[in-house]
Write a protein that binds this DNA or RNA. Structure first.
Length: 553
RNA sequence: UGGGGCGUAGCCAAGAGGUAAGGCAGUGGAUUUUGAUUCCACCAUUCGGAGGUUCGAAUCCUCCCGCCCCAGCCA
């Protein structure tokens, strides 16, 4: 873990609670945990939780465990376990020896379930799922006691052991806590603690025929691990009384406390595992790591650095109010980091040929800075009679505020010469296909000895000595800031979320090296090489564009 | 209609009886061989609303309004 990860911390109500607990002597070593269920890939919402849990542990010299809440074998897979570990590490966090699985505690949890039965706090219910649902009552009406609620301890123990032994089919019985069927909090209306599930578990195989529910596993796992601050999202608020009830009624080794914060929401983005899983399953995206996905794997492939994710999450803060963060805040964090680290290169996305009519020589090499920070050095770029510039940098009939090239105007080719557009060549259909220009030899390098100014500097590549590339541009995956608010999230999918440019041209430095993780294509944005690149055909993903005050005007 | 939460600027978010931090976005301006970066300035007479307490209220009290979560043998 880096020092920056530590200093990135902000202040929030949870850290205030931790402070207060330390000052009051209620805790000494701070212990947290990040507890994903391995039923999908991590997304940026999880990053908020990861940064919070690992961040707090770092700041207070405590520890943070990675614990898989693998209590539902019907949905979990080893692939997800592997992906989650990879993503947490990539984000910059290390759980050290504290890698846990709720399934490691199945035997202990089972023993505690029997403890509850012996104390008269749990019973085996023979009702069907449907019957339980009906007798649970509604939000406004109390539930009704199960006819099996008053079984003897011996009968409960016998039945529960036979459940474990696999004697009964799925759903035939459950173990329920005996609390209060009339509670206003529905989680306290005799919640199910164990269900019969004849399923292969990724880690325990066919050992078990019963599995604990989240409520029975989570708090007790926290207690086993000595977690002091069990941090989760707001929707578990109503579970806290049950969490506390179980801790209070079981001989657990420690007494953790649960605190809830608002989950992250971002405009034009969906952070729902259900929806993301569907997008992948239905092929609406190329996979969990599709660069349009808000998954950690997708952001990584998109070129978003972990530092930017941490900085973003830190800027958003941690509170209890539901909110939707502007995607611009995320993009800012990405640009902020990339601006500092990304080498500058030139690439033309949509090319327009330029012929310098008064340029004759065989060509030459010019020096170009690798970064605004001069310490990062320079590189050579080839110049010649035929070049490509960006189509958007030329307009035959420019509006008032257009500073770039148009008939008769002079602009600077970055690091090269001033050129003036003399003639426009069109095809039969009237499309501009080529520009005939002249250059001023005295402006080599980009400065005019006579001190004359140009209104724009544009990027370019040599026609002969540039290389072809594929460039992929990404737009939000959804067309509205609140996907799904209209009733169907999938109806809000943006059909134009991916734009592939097949005829981009890149300068030699980009074609020759593949070591640059992130680069800035000058005046275009930040890009990164995609793994789909082949030796003759590099593929670049646009991570994020540059700010563009012209486009906005 | 039961229970649990939450409302501070366009978007996040501090603040906890002493007179509205910060960031993003936006708007002006300076610098600039990226319409980028950087820099400087501006951007809530008011904190969901109405009353009340107080010398003083975003902070305390009362009522009201709005939004979110909960009726899986998911997590």
């Amino acid at each position: 873990m880096t020092d920056t990860a530590v200093t990135e911390a902000g202040r929030d109500f949870i850290r205030d609670i931790v402070d207060a607990d330390r000052v009051a002597g209620r805790v000494s070593t701070i212990v947290t945990r990040f507890p994903p269920e391995p039923n999908g890939y991590l997304h940026i919402g999880h990053a908020k939780s990861i940064c919070l849990n690992f961040g707090i542990a770092q700041e207070y010299g405590g520890r943070c465990a990675l614990r898989f809440d693998d209590t539902n074998p019907a949905k979990e897979e080893q692939e997800y376990i592997d992906a989650i570990m990879r993503d947490v590490r990539w984000l910059g966090y290390d759980w050290g020896p504290y890698l846990h699985f709720a399934s490691d505690y199945f035997e202990q949890l089972y023993a505690w379930a029997e403890h509850l039965i012996r104390a008269g706090h749990a019973y085996v219910d023979d009702q069907s799922a449907e019957q339980i649902r009906v007798t649970r009552g509604t939000l406004t009406e109390p539930g009704r006691n199960s006819p099996f609620r008053n079984r003897t301890v011996d009968e409960n123990l016998d039945l529960f052991r036979r459940m474990r032994a696999g004697e009964f089919p799925n759903g035939a019985r459950t173990l329920r806590a005996r609390i209060d069927m009339a509670s206003g909090n529905i989680n306290l209306r005799d919640p199910v603690l164990y269900r019969i599930l004849h399923a292969e578990h990724p880690r325990t195989g066919a050992t078990w025929h019963i599995y604990p529910t989240y409520d029975f596993a989570h708090g007790q796992s926290d207690a086993i691990e000595g977690v002091t601050h069990s941090i989760c999202t707001l929707e578990f608020e109503d579970h806290r009384p049950l969490y506390d009830w179980l801790i209070a009624h079981l001989p657990v080794p420690s007494h953790p406390h649960q605190y809830e914060f608002a989950r992250l929401n971002i405009g034009y983005t969906v952070l729902s595992k259900r929806v993301l899983t569907t997008l992948v399953r239905d092929g609406r995206v190329s996979g969990w790591d599709d660069p349009r996905m808000p998954t950690i794997a997708g952001l990584r492939r998109r070129g978003v650095p972990p530092e930017a994710i941490r900085a973003f999450v830190q800027r958003v803060g941690v509170a209890r109010a539901n909110s939707v963060v502007d995607i611009a805040m995320f993009e800012f964090a990405v640009r902020e980091h990339l601006n500092k680290v990304a080498p500058r290169r030139m690439a033309v996305l949509r090319s327009l040929k330029v012929v310098i009519e008064n340029y004759d020589g065989p060509g030459e090499e010019l020096d170009a800075a690798n970064h605004p920070d001069p310490s990062q050095g320079t590189r050579k770029i080839p110049f010649g009679r035929e070049l490509y510039i960006e189509r958007d940098d030329f307009m035959e009939n420019p509006p008032k505020k257009f500073f770039r090239l148009s008939p008769g105007t002079e602009v600077r080719l970055r690091y090269a010469y001033f050129i003036t557009c003399r003639d426009v060549v069109k095809d039969a259909a009237g499309n501009v296909v080529e520009l005939r220009c002249s250059y001023d030899p005295a402006t080599r390098g980009g400065n005019a000895p006579d001190g004359r100014k140009v209104k724009a500097t544009i990027h370019w590549v040599s026609a002969a000595k540039s290389f072809p590339a594929e460039i992929r541009l990404y737009n939000p995956l959804f067309t509205r800031p609140d996907p799904g608010a209209g009733g169907d999230v999938f109806a809000d999918i943006n059909p134009n979320s991916l734009e592939i440019l097949n005829e981009a041209r890149i300068e030699p430095a980009l074609a020759q090296s593949n070591s640059d993780r992130a680069v800035q294509f000058e005046r275009q944005g930040y890009f990164c090489r995609d793994d789909a690149s082949t030796p003759g055909r590099p593929v670049f993903n646009r991570t994020v564009g540059l700010r563009d005050s012209y486009a906005k005007a």
